[in-house]
Each structure stands twice: as structure tokens, then as C-alpha cells.
């Protein structure tokens, strides 16, 4: 996983609640079997019209939000489908951190696994950050995971809380599987103590 400590960059705002992952990455692209190259499909149906031309009214098409690294969005961001293609697409498009009043559970977990940092702030703080963005010329903010702070263009600093374990993993870019495999003995012991009755190989005649 990609490590993350801090980033300073352009902010984009999509001030809508309940943005679902079907919008973040529409299903027609989910047939790709690659792990990379997802950025160009982000918000496809919202970003582009039927002929493939940018929709001038969609937030990410505003010049002030071009090349953004930080996304500010409404509550319950990432609801719906568990598709990890959603964080892959956000990351591929250039986002490194997301800020919203809340995220859907699976989406938040998926973000952490790929090094895209989902930050929850109280609704009022998110509102203050959105208000601090210059929608004409664009604005930059700094997200610092080590310090757990966001610095808005005027210099005000917002603190956020973050799960200590996930922070440690993100700061160090740790591989979850390698971490778990350090406890292989515990897994084996569990399996010995709980043999279970499910055997898909026997069912399918594959064994």
C-alpha cells in the first residue's frame, strides 16, 4: 500500500450528500481486470455527457478544481456497492485525501486499504472548509495525517480524529496481509480448535 504522511494541494468540492459508488465509478467499467488506470473513468456519467464531452456544470469540471488532491464532500460519501474500484478511481484521478462529515463503512475501509485517506469532520467544520474554498481561482489546503490536522487557505487549523492502528498502517504503507500472516500460528490454532463443517471441495466434487 502507498504510504501517506501529508499532502498540500488543490481542493475540489462536491457538496452533495449520499454520493454512492455507482456514481463514483459506473458499472460499465467494472469489467476491467486491471488494478490501475481507473482515474479516467471517475464520475464518468456525471463528468461527461453522452457524447463524451465534459458537462460544464459538474463540480470536477470547474477550472478552480483542476488537478485537485483533496476532495470535500457531503455526508455518507461512498454508500452502496462495495466496489473497491471507487477508491482506485479517486486515487487514479489524483485524490490523496477525502474530507466529509461521514463515509459509508465498506467504502471507508476500502480507502484505508489502498492509502486514500478518508477524514471525518463534524458537519460544521466541513461547511467551514467548503466556505474557505475560492470557487473562482481555486484553493490549496494541507492535510497532515501525522499531526491529524487540516490547514485551510486562511491558515486556520482543524484537528481530526483518526483510528490509531489505521494511522500507523497508512503512515508506514503497511501490507495488511503481511501483518496478518505474522499471526499464522494463531490462525492455525484457531482452525485446529474449530474444525467446522463446511467443505466446498467435497460439495463440488473437486477434492
Amino acid at each position: 500500500m502507498q504510504a501517506f504522511t501529508r499532502t498540500t494541494g488543490r481542493v475540489a468540492v462536491i457538496d452533495r450528500p449520499d454520493i454512492d459508488t455507482d456514481q463514483v465509478i459506473p458499472k460499465q467499467f467494472l469489467k476491467r481486470i486491471e488494478r490501475t488506470g481507473w482515474g479516467e473513468f471517475l464520475f464518468w456519467d456525471w463528468r461527461l455527457d453522452e457524447d463524451g464531452n465534459p458537462r460544464p456544470d459538474f463540480e470536477l469540471n470547474q477550472p478552480a478544481f483542476a488537478d485537485a488532491k483533496i476532495l470535500l464532500a457531503g455526508r455518507n460519501f461512498g454508500c452502496g456497492s462495495s466496489r473497491e474500484h471507487a477508491p482506485w478511481s479517486l486515487q487514479g484521478y489524483g485524490f490523496e485525501a477525502l474530507i466529509a462529515p461521514s463515509f459509508a463503512d465498506i467504502f471507508r475501509s476500502n480507502c484505508m486499504k489502498v492509502g486514500l485517506v478518508p477524514i471525518e469532520l463534524p458537519e460544521d467544520d466541513v461547511r467551514a472548509l467548503i466556505d474557505a474554498v475560492d470557487n473562482e481561482n481555486g484553493s490549496e489546503m494541507t492535510v497532515d495525517l501525522q499531526e491529524q490536522t487540516i490547514t485551510e487557505p486562511g491558515g486556520s487549523v482543524f484537528e481530526f480524529s483518526f483510528d490509531a492502528f489505521r494511522k500507523h498502517c497508512l503512515l508506514n504503507g503497511l501490507d495488511d496481509i503481511a501483518l496478518t500472516l505474522q499471526h499464522e500460528d494463531a490462525i492455525t490454532a484457531y482452525e485446529k480448535a474449530n474444525p467446522g463443517r463446511i467443505d466446498t471441495l467435497a460439495l463440488t466434487g473437486a477434492s
Binding site: 476500502n110 495488511d176 496478518t180 500472516l181
Partner: peptide
């Protein structure tokens, strides 16, 4: 439900 990174994690570690 889980994401694809977790699918890989479960395949590797159960």
C-alpha cells in the same frame, strides 16, 4: 460485503 483488497486478504489468510 468487503472490497477487493479484503478479498485478497481472506484468500491469503482466511
Amino acid at each position: 460485503g468487503i472490497g477487493t483488497s479484503e478479498v485478497e486478504h481472506v484468500l491469503a489468510t482466511q
